[in-house]
């Protein structure tokens, strides 16, 4: 994905100021920055989830495979099937585990038969590392799972429609350390298969799971580069302050 000079406004307030970034498809890209710096807003601009907020307005170009996603020719439904999203708080539907996963494939017509749907469900849950835990209780409610399992269910749900990009908006902030470790492991496993963009408050997490890191501050992208460079050898003074401030 490529973005050029993206501005996002909420009413009169500018939340994102001229962000230009290339997101590689084979890596995990982390967005870090203090609260309110606009990283989640920018993430939501990437699959047009800001459309659901009436006052939000996006300027500039955001391209997916060279195609501008904000032109009228782009079907937002198709876009979101290609750019999936995982939210801060696990939000499984109050349906069975099976139906949670089957939801996307069904609405997009990805499975012709019951067998192929079963296959998609199993494959998605397996990739999300959840299959062995839930295979015997697929018709139990998704909301009955633990928080960490719910979040993996949401990741499996996103995977089920076979997207190109998965956006994760602080996926571990509502989870305990063990569940967090599992999600991070899962992100590692998925690296290379999907382009993953993760917004996180934890710099350790960004350092652990990502290959590229972008630092946001006050609506601007301050610095973007290989994760190692950002953490060990930042160019910008502000990046350095933020990173060292957090550690020390």
């Amino acid at each position: 994905m490529r973005t050029r000079d993206v501005n996002v406004y909420y009413g009169d307030k500018q939340a994102i100021d001229s962000v230009t970034i290339d997101i590689p498809s084979q890596f995990v890209t982390a967005f870090i920055g203090p609260s309110g710096c606009g990283k989640s807003t920018f993430l939501r601009a990437l699959n047009r989830m800001n459309d659901t907020i009436p006052s939000a307005k996006v300027e500039g170009t955001i391209e997916l495979d060279g195609q501008d996603i904000y032109t009228s020719g782009m079907d937002v439904v198709q876009l979101r099937a290609r750019v999936g999203m995982v939210f801060q708080k696990p939000n499984p539907f109050p349906k069975s585990i099976y139906d949670n996963i089957a939801y996307g494939p069904k609405i997009h017509g990805l499975a012709e038969t019951k067998d192929s749907l079963d296959e998609i469900v199993e494959k998605s849950l397996t990739r999300a590392g959840l299959w062995n835990e839930v295979k015997d209780r697929l018709d139990e409610s998704g909301t009955a799972l633990s928080g960490g399992q719910q979040q993996r269910l949401c990741i499996a749900r996103a995977i089920a429609v076979d997207p190109e990009v998965i956006l994760m908006d602080e996926p571990c902030s509502a989870l305990d350390p063990i569940a967090t470790a599992k999600i991070e492991e899962l992100i590692d496993d998925l690296t290379g298969r999907y382009a993953i963009v993760i917004v996180t408050h934890s710099m350790q997490q960004a350092a652990r799971v990502s290959q590229r890191t972008a630092f946001f501050h006050l609506g601007k992208m301050v610095e973007y580069g290989p994760t190692e460079d950002i953490f060990t050898n930042p160019i910008e003074e502000r990046t350095k302050d933020y990173i060292t401030g957090r550690y020390g």
Binding site: R82, P94, G104, H108, R157
Partner: peptide
């Protein structure tokens, strides 16, 4: 119905009417 439910469905690429029929009304 928590708006996370609606966002979750929309983020899957469901249309608004699919979201209403399959997620909001059942919930």
């Amino acid at each position: 119905v928590p708006s996370a439910m609606r966002d979750g469905s929309l983020a899957m690429g469901a249309t608004q009417s699919e979201t209403i029929k399959k997620v909001l009304i059942p919930a």
